[in-house]
Design a protein around this nucleic acid. Structure first.
Length: 450
RNA sequence: GGCGCCAUCGUCUAGUCUGGUCUAGGACGCCGGGUUCUCAACCCGGUAACUGGGGUUCAAAUCCCCAUGGCGCUACCA
C-alpha cells in the first residue's frame, strides 16, 4: 500500500457479468487519476451480488485488463459476495428503528426487507452537475434485502461505501438517477453521504449508449487488435475530460498531474475509433522497434506464419521498413506477412491489372536477368538496375515498379520497392518474379490457343 | 408516460462559472497541394460549429426563461 497524504478514498466497483467495458475502464481511470492526484486511496470492489450472472472468468478478465491499462489499486479486490454477512445487521436495525418493514410472507421465500418512503426533498450535490433535486416520491419504498436473502444493489452499495469510508463516488451518469435512492439510505442509516461525481456516458457513433452493436467495446478487444495501453488510456482520458491547454498526447503521469474533476465535461462523448487509431500510431512511433517486433510475433501467426519461421532480427528489420504504415499490431501483421512466406498469392484482378499489361512481361524478364547477375542485392544496386531498365525502355518509373511490386509482394501498397526487395533477399525475389513470369506465359499461351 | 441530465465544427473539445480580448482556438476525420516507385508518414492549405425563440445588458457562445432535440433512469439487475 502506498502512503497517502489525504484521506480521500475512491473506488471502482464493476460487476463481473461480462468483460471490462470502455465505459468502465474510463470510470476506473478517472477514479484512479483522482486518487493519485490527491494522494488518496483507490479501492477495487467487485460487485458480484448477482450470483447468477457473475463469473470468476469475468473477475479475472476485469482485473487483468485494469492491470494492462497500467492502473493499480491500494485495497482489494473486495468481493461483495464475501460480505453478505455485513448487510443483514443494517437492515435489522432499520426495522428495529421503525424505518423499514418486513414484506408479507411469500410462500416458499423469505420475506424481503423494505425501507419506508420519506417525504423530504432529496438534493444531490454533484461535483460535476451541481445541485440536482429529486422528489422523494420517485424513490418510494426501497427494497433492502431481497427474498433470496441477498441485498439489493443500492443497499449493498451504500453499506459498502460507508464501511470502506469512500469519500468520493465517481461513476457514470447513468447512476445519477440512482443517487436519490442511495441518499435516502444514507439518511436512514444516519450516515454522512460521500461526494458524488457523475461522469458523462460514452456513446456510439449513432448517439446511443456504446454497446456491442457498435463494434469493439471491451478493453480486451482493443488489446487483441494490437492497441497499446498508453494509447487507449490517453484516448479514454480525452473522452469527457481535457487538460484545457490543447495537449493531446499525455502519459499517465501527465494525466495525474493535470487531472481534475472540475474539468470533466457534463456532455456525453461519442467514441471515435479513428482518433484512437491515430493516437495508437503516435504511440507506436515512441516504442522501440525491437519491442514492436516482439509484440507483433503472435499476430503473424494469424496469417499462417509460424513463429519459429520468424527470426527476430529479420522481423525487426521488417518493422523498421514498415515505418508508420500500421495503426495497430493486426494491421502490422497484415502488411508484414509476405516477408515470411515462401510464395505470394496474387489474385486474378490484381494480376490482370498490373502484370498483363503491354510489355510488362518483357520488362520483368529483363530486370530479372539483371538481378540474377547482381553480386550485391542491396537497395542501391537494385535501384540502379531498375532505373537502367526504365531509362532504356523509356517508360515511367511506375510502369515497371508497380508490376514488379505486385509480382514480388502480391500487393500494390508496400514500403519502398528497392528496400523491400533487398530485405526479401535475392532468392525469394527471383523466385517470385519467375513465378509471375510463368503465370504470364501461361496466360499468353492460353490466349493464343483459345 | 413520469423523473432527471445534456446541448459549440461530422467527431473529441477550448471558450461558459468570473458577459466585451471569440470576425469562436486546437485535435481527429475529410478535401486539395507538396514530396514520391505505390501506400503510409511528414509539410502546407482548406472545409466545418455557438439547436431555435424570447428576454436581461451599452455588449451574450457566455446570464435567465421557454421550446426543440438527444440521452439516461424508471426491478426483490448491477
Amino acid at each position: 500500500m502506498r502512503s497517502n497524504s489525504s484521506n480521500i478514498r475512491v473506488r471502482f466497483a464493476p460487476s463481473p457479468t461480462g468483460y471490462l467495458h470502455i465505459g468502465g475502464a474510463r470510470t476506473a481511470l478517472f477514479n484512479w487519476l483522482y486518487a493519485r492526484k490527491l494522494g488518496g486511496v483507490f479501492v477495487l470492489r467487485i460487485e458480484d451480488t448477482d450470483i447468477q450472472r457473475s463469473t470468476q472468468e469475468s473477475i479475472d478478465a476485469i482485473i487483468d485488463n485494469i492491470r494492462w491499462l497500467g492502473l493499480d489499486w491500494d485495497e482489494g479486490p473486495i468481493l461483495q459476495s464475501q460480505r453478505f454477512h455485513a448487510y443483514g445487521g443494517y437492515a435489522e436495525r432499520l426495522v428495529r428503528e421503525g424505518k423499514a418493514y418486513i414484506s408479507e410472507e411469500k410462500k416458499g421465500a423469505k420475506p424481503a426487507v423494505i425501507l419506508k418512503r420519506t417525504s423530504d426533498l432529496i438534493v444531490v450535490d454533484d461535483l460535476i452537475h451541481g445541485r440536482v433535486e429529486f422528489d422523494p416520491e420517485v424513490v418510494g419504498d426501497l427494497v433492502l434485502m431481497k427474498s433470496d436473502g441477498t441485498p439489493t444493489y443500492n443497499f449493498a452499495c451504500v453499506v459498502d461505501d460507508s464501511e470502506m469510508c469512500i469519500t468520493h463516488i465517481i461513476r457514470g451518469d447513468d447512476h445519477l438517477s440512482n443517487t436519490p435512492k442511495q441518499l435516502v439510505l444514507y439518511r436512514a442509516l444516519g450516515l454522512t453521504p460521500p461526494q458524488f461525481a457523475h461522469v458523462p456516458l460514452i456513446l456510439g457513433p449513432d448517439g446511443s449508449r456504446l454497446s456491442k452493436r457498435h463494434g469493439a467495446t471491451a478493453v480486451g478487444q482493443f488489446r487483441e487488435e494490437g492497441i497499446l495501453p498508453e494509447a487507449l488510456v490517453n484516448f479514454l482520458a480525452l473522452l469527457g475530460w481535457s487538460p484545457g491547454d490543447n495537449r493531446e498526447m499525455m502519459t499517465l503521469e501527465h494525466l495525474v498531474a493535470s487531472f481534475s474533476l472540475e474539468r470533466v465535461s457534463k456532455k456525453s462523448a461519442v467514441f471515435d475509433a479513428k482518433k484512437l487509431a491515430w493516437l495508437n500510431m503516435q504511440y507506436f512511433k515512441l516504442r522501440p522497434t525491437a519491442e514492436i517486433a516482439r509484440m507483433a510475433l503472435p499476430y503473424l501467426e494469424e496469417f499462417g506464419v509460424l513463429p519459429e519461421e520468424i527470426p527476430l532480427p529479420r522481423l525487426e528489420a521488417v518493422v523498421r521498413l514498415l515505418g508508420e504504415r500500421f495503426r495497430n499490431l493486426r494491421e502490422l501483421a497484415e502488411k508484414a506477412h509476405y516477408f515470411f512466406t515462401r510464395t505470394v498469392r496474387i489474385d486474378d484482378t490484381l494480376f490482370e491489372k498490373h502484370l498483363q499489361k503491354e510489355n510488362a512481361a518483357a520488362a520483368i524478364r529483363e530486370v530479372t536477368g539483371r538481378m540474377r547477375a547482381l553480386e550485391e542485392f542491396t537497395p542501391e544496386s537494385l535501384e540502379r538496375e531498375m532505373r537502367a531498365v526504365i531509362a532504356e525502355r523509356g517508360v515511367k518509373a511506375g510502369e515497371l515498379i508497380q508490376p514488379v511490386r505486385v509480382a514480388v509482394t502480391g500487393r500494390t501498397e508496400t514500403p519502398g520497392i528497392f528496400e523491400t526487395m533487398a530485405l526479401l533477399g535475392k532468392e525469394a525475389v527471383l523466385a517470385r518474379l519467375e513465378d509471375a513470369l510463368g503465370r504470364c506465359g501461361k496466360r499468353a499461351a492460353q490466349g493464343e490457343n483459345g
